[in-house]
Nucleic acid binder design. Structure first.
Lengths: 196, 196, 196, 196
DNA sequence: AATGAATGAGGATTCATTCAT
DNA sequence: GATGAATGAATCCTCATTCAT
């Protein structure tokens, strides 16, 4: 009943190996062995090792962008929207913990055009997020004594860092961590006396 | 007693190349060419390519640990100490921006023993930092409704993320960013009504 | 009874690609894509890539041999026959310029048996031509102070070289070049004082 | 006492194999085995398989161009010069029979830049040759009723064709063939009644 | 007749490291 | 201390061909 077993198997194997030993340290041979397919079959579905890396990113980026659009489309008040966005990125980043591990280590190994494509899509996400913060500042919700770029970086830092420390076997659940980090971030950026 | 030894030239070249194109994408040949030395000369000072990577980390880790010890040794009140520590790690991380770029991307490429050595030293830093937070919580300075591990991760996330976004050519200076991120972090973790 | 069969499309595509980039540099995949058919369809009509090459030669060799036989069969005087033969090979070689390009570069890529088959047929043509020269020499038309093999080679050299330099877009027409090269050749081999 | 045994051995092996089985049908593995060196050693002296091909051409083109310049520099009468040039190209082409075999079959396998370099140098030779013919025509030595391009092609055809038919074991010596082909060519292009 | 996924052997190239000089 | 030629294992990728459908 599987649609395309080969491509899926290869991608799953690649994800596991790239996360465990790094992209550069993983040979195509290892990937196909782990996936139980032949090299030829793999190259029937993917044009290069590079493609595997990109496909891994693609799934994650697409899903997160879709979520972001959906949340913004609900048209709720800024503070509700921003909180929902924060919680969602953190939760999906935990869902894609392996992808994240691979992502942040190995984007620079992508071919130049692909790297630009990835950067473009990440920037789009980033800009939408920054737009929400800007609107919130205009409404007096968030502080303006710190440059917006720093506020935004302060949030994505948490997302970026997740694969480094979070473990599903750890004491906190995905939902708890999402709520906690979001709380820390929003408290930090809240407007208040002497914060513009 | 030479100002510019072969080893220094090689390390500088390696740092630049590793940061620009990645450790795995940089050949020893490229490093020695950039450094203006021969392969034989390099292998006289370094046992392996691995050694170059480790040496890069080593300088940064040693310096940051020394700073941490010095600040703690001053024996100032917790809130003063923690703030100083935060500012210092951020500032030195900016001083070592290239090192950081290489570090976070390529630790996993080190040989197993070396990786453990690096992890051990980073954990030591991390534990000292967590100890400061714990003391502050005991004094009622920092919130306790969020697990300490999450508070600490929330800070190191900022440090970790710096090489990704900060640019010396950007609008903010190193000192400003250090102050701003520290402020966001400390505001986020501050104790308050309903925060334990 | 179809005008444009799969086989024809494939051969046309193969001819163009082989001429443009070489036989070895052209993949079967490229051929079928260019022809607008699938690999399976191609392998239904041709047993191997080798077959494509041979089919290209085959058309040209068959046609030239048929022409030769027809001209000889007319039973005209030697000098008329030889001139007609020369003009015809040159003209048909220009008609089959792409075939010639491929031919002279890639015969050695054919399977051994096929290579022999091609050689056999070329030699047959060559021998008939040499026979005409021999008869002409017996009649005192052509010089005998140069070995007959050299005289014959001197002619086929011109034919062989056509794909290298002749262009339909060039200043001379096919008919002109055929007449001119024939003239140069026949003048060169003509009997005369001190030429046996 | 050998200067660089490795490079020479490799080149010699490559020449033999390329001539016998074709460039595309010869693997780098075969070349190094035949040369008795390791693959790594070969790649220390040549950047690519392509390089081997180019080096083979290079030797031949350089030598022939040098000869041409030397002969022209003697400043003898046109008819003496042209005859000497013809004889020389034919003789050196026989000396480099294997190189020629490889050359004419495989130029199109070179990388684009290298192909242009080869073409440039061949054209230079060709142009000098055409210049000699032009001068001879001006002096009334050579016919003008046939376009100069065709006259020149008629000569290079012979050179081009040599590797296809000439054999050192054949009945004629290099010197004989050179004299005979030159004679056929010069007779063919000589001025005369009704030839402009 | 036709499809196109899958095979599997082979190919060119890279590169960290060694070692005789 | 320093050289750079040589090693040899590993890597990514290509491709003609087959075969179940």
């Amino acid at each position: 009943m599987k649609q395309t077993s080969v491509a899926d198997d290869v991608l799953r194997a690649a994800l596991g190996l790239f996360a465990a030993q790094g992209y550069a340290n993983t040979s195509v041979q290892q990937v196909v062995e782990q996936a139980g397919v032949t090299k030829g079959a793999m190259y029937h579905y993917f044009q290069s090792k590079d493609d595997l890396l990109f496909a891994i990113y693609d799934r994650m980026l697409t899903l997160q962008t879709d979520h972001l659009d959906a949340i913004v489309a609900r048209g709720e008040p800024i503070e509700v929207t921003l909180r929902a966005v924060c919680v969602d990125v953190i939760e999906t980043s935990i869902d894609f913990l392996l992808e994240g591990t691979v992502f942040f280590r190995s984007v620079h190994m992508l071919s130049q055009p692909r790297q630009q494509e990835v950067t473009r899509r990440r920037r789009a996400y980033h800009d939408t997020f920054a737009g929400l913060v800007e609107k919130g500042q205009a409404e007096g919700l968030y502080r303006t004594d710190v440059p917006r770029g720093v506020l935004v970086a302060h949030f994505f830092a948490d997302v970026h860092y997740l694969p480094t420390w979070f473990s599903p076997e750890g004491p906190e659940t995905k939902e708890q961590v999402a709520a906690q980090l979001t709380e820390l971030f929003l408290t930090g950026i809240a407007a208040g006396p002497g914060r513009g």
